[in-house]
């Protein structure tokens, strides 16, 4: 049993392709979400607004620099996520395969670390 995040990553092209048939995409995504709810695996799902309306806080220098989005050179944009409670990594991957994605987009499957998984070098320093 583990929690996994399915991270949606689109490109400008795949996002544009999705927007041309946004109604169908919404219906397909809702069906996908309902299936995960019925399977008892979905913990959370969120979709992000247009990156053009986002802001980037950049810590490259001494002080954080705030710039209006989009991200600049980034090719793949984080568009949303599903948080799943599944029996195995393979199950997380199987759910990801079922996402009604547009061609050109990607899903990154990442395990959520547990509260007890403190990196070794910070052990004893307490938890956040």
């Amino acid at each position: 049993m583990s929690t996994y995040m399915l991270i949606m990553r689109g490109t400008d092209e795949s996002n544009a392709a999705m927007m041309t048939s946004i109604d169908e995409a919404m219906v397909a995504t809702r069906t996908f979400i309902e299936e995960m709810v019925r399977a008892g695996v979905l913990l959370a799902a969120e979709g992000l607004d247009d990156p053009a309306r986002g802001v980037v806080v950049d810590f490259a220098g001494e002080a954080p620099v705030v710039t209006d989005g989009p991200y600049g050179e980034t090719k793949e944009l984080f568009g949303g996520y599903f948080l799943l409670d599944v029996a195995s990594k393979e199950e997380a991957v199987e759910w990801a395969r079922r996402f009604p994605a547009v061609r050109g987009s990607k899903i990154e499957v990442r395990r959520v670390a547990g509260a007890d998984e403190v990196p070794a070098d910070s052990a004893g320093s307490g938890h956040l």
Binding site: M1, V37, R38, A39, G40, V41, D85, A87
Partner: peptide, 18 residues
């Protein structure tokens, strides 16, 4: 044995959805 407890939670979520 959290994996066993997890199965029950998962089934309970399914039942709550149905």
């Amino acid at each position: 044995r959290p994996d066993v407890a997890y199965e029950a939670i998962r089934l309970a979520r399914t039942l709550a959805a149905l």
